[in-house]
């Protein structure tokens, strides 16, 4: 083995890029951002004009920020359980298929290659276009005889845009979580099922409830967490489906998640103090819920 000095030198050389990068692009932004959030920093990124917690108070009292939090909570309540059920269901369907397993897996997984921007484009201009030639309106007309086309995105009552926003994310991410569940399913020893059959259990709900679900516990918790963290940071589909420069520009206020609002405060109004304060509030919520979830489900506890 090499000398101690050689090892120390090599260690820091190997660590240098990542440590330098994380310092400049993670720790400095967090520190600088925190000081900015305590400053009156309109049209400037200079620290110094300290105003205490005013920015935080402003954001917490801002009706728009509160609305954005409600928006993202509604979205999370829809998308997280739906993704969980759909991806576990797909995983069990695909994993149990003898023939054509690879083909089906690819079909459900391939949306992962598509960006949120492109998917939003297909959903907004193709599937859920408000004109009669929009695919969903064609389906409603041809199959159900409904003649009046539905404005899926601009209608506020009923709020059809939730259907658009939730299905686009479901299509994009469900395959990814399906892959994680398939990996989890394949790690369950077959002997557990065989033992259950010997004891008289029948394939179906009983084995699912007493073997599959408990054995997938860690995977379920991991998927739940990843999914929640991602949903709370939704931006792309809200921006591209609800946004616009022309007559449709007003749609944005129908469903504006926190990140879109922060973008408008920080980069639109150039108010970096309030923008960073909002970012820290959101971070606190995400970290807080993550820790709570971890405690509640006993994250990492072995099954």
């Amino acid at each position: 083995m090499g000398t101690k000095r050689e090892a120390t030198f090599a260690f820091w050389v190997f660590m240098a890029p990542i440590l330098l990068g994380l310092l400049v692009f993670t720790f400095v932004p967090i520190g600088w951002g925190f000081l900015l959030s305590l400053s009156d920093a309109r049209n400037s990124v200079d620290i110094g004009n300290f105003i205490g917690l005013d920015n935080y108070a402003f954001m917490l009292q801002s009706p728009q920020f509160q609305d954005s939090l409600i928006t993202i909570i509604i979205f999370t309540i829809f998308i997280v359980p739906l993704t969980l059920f759909a991806s576990l269901g797909l995983a069990m369907l695909v994993n149990g298929a003898g023939w054509g397993r690879g083909i089906f897996r690819t079909a459900f997984f391939i949306p992962t290659a598509i960006s949120y921007v492109i998917a939003s484009l297909i959903w907004r201009m193709g599937l859920f276009s408000g004109v009669p030639s929009g695919v969903m309106n064609v389906v409603l007309y041809e199959w159900f005889g409904i003649e009046a086309p539905i404005s899926w995105i601009t209608s506020s009552n009923p709020p059809w845009y939730w259907l658009v926003l939730v299905t686009v994310r479901l299509w994009l991410q469900v395959g990814l979580y399906m892959i994680i569940f398939i990996a989890g399913l394949q790690e369950i020893p077959r002997s557990l099922y065989e033992a259950a059959f010997v004891d008289g259990a029948r394939s179906g709900w009983m084995t699912f409830r007493h073997i599959t679900l408990p054995m997938l516990r860690n995977t379920l918790v991991a998927v739940l967490l990843l999914n929640f963290i991602a949903a709370f940071q939704a931006f792309d589909e809200f921006w591209n489906i609800m946004g616009g420069t022309a007559a449709s520009a007003g749609n944005r206020s129908l469903a504006r998640p926190p990140l879109v609002y922060l973008y408008q405060v920080a980069l639109g109004d150039q108010d970096y103090g309030r923008g960073t304060a909002g970012a820290f509030i959101l971070t606190a919520i995400i970290v807080g819920v993550t820790l709570l979830q971890g405690r509640f489900f006993g994250f990492g506890r072995s099954t």
């Binding site: 660590m15 990542i18 440590l19 994380l22 400049v24 692009f25 993670t26 720790f27 400095v28 932004p29 967090i30 600088w32 951002g33 925190f34 900015l36 990124v45 963290i229 709370f232 940071q233 931006f235 990140l259 922060l262 973008y263 920080a266 980069l267 970096y272 923008g275 960073t276 909002g278 970012a279 959101l282 971070t283 995400i286 970290v287 993550t290």
Partner: peptide, 26 residues
């Protein structure tokens, strides 16, 4: 060093776009 690196995993990446923009601008 390992724990310092791990600690950054707690920070949700997209949320820090405002402070990160400030640094990149500078």
């Amino acid at each position: 060093v390992f724990f310092v690196i791990l600690s950054t995993l707690m920070v949700p990446s997209a949320v820090t776009f405002v402070p990160s923009y400030v640094v990149v601008a500078n």
